[in-house]
């Protein structure tokens, strides 16, 4: 199973952008709701876990080259944010899990994944 599939299944993610946006390799993850903190600490290829769902999330994602955004707590972005994400090819995924639960599952996946390699 690909890493993307494993993550989608474990976090029960729903992809809101087109499948074509899932083009980047996931290299790790970072969780944060302060945009300046994410900007300074997220690494290219990270999956960004956040409660935010406004369009500035897409701007920060584009600038930092994250592989995707996991919006937690069953929050859905508005149509405008989805359009920007589609244009910038940033996958937006939603989950019912909260930041802690989503990050915990990702931590587990990456721990196992690095052992397999």
């Amino acid at each position: 199973m690909s890493l993307w599939n494993k993550i989608m299944e474990s976090l029960e993610l729903k992809l809101l952008t087109s499948p074509e946006t899932l083009k980047r390799q996931v290299r790790g993850a970072y969780c944060g709701d302060l945009l300046s903190d994410v900007l300074a600490h997220v690494a290219p290829g990270d999956l960004w876990v956040t409660i935010h769902r406004h369009r500035n999330v897409v701007a920060v994602s584009t600038l930092t080259n994250v592989s995707g955004v996991v919006i937690t707590g069953d929050r859905y972005p508005d149509r405008e944010t989805l359009e920007v994400a589609e244009r910038e090819a940033i996958p937006l995924l939603v989950t019912k899990l909260n930041n802690f639960q989503a990050s915990g599952k990702l931590y587990q996946i990456f721990s196992e994944y690095s052992q397999e390699m």
Binding site: S36, H52, N56
Partner: peptide, 16 residues
């Protein structure tokens, strides 16, 4: 509320 205004803007500018 949007995640801005954490008081990290100028410190980040200085740091990087």
């Amino acid at each position: 509320e949007m995640g801005f205004g954490a008081g990290m803007g100028l410190p980040n500018i200085k740091r990087f």
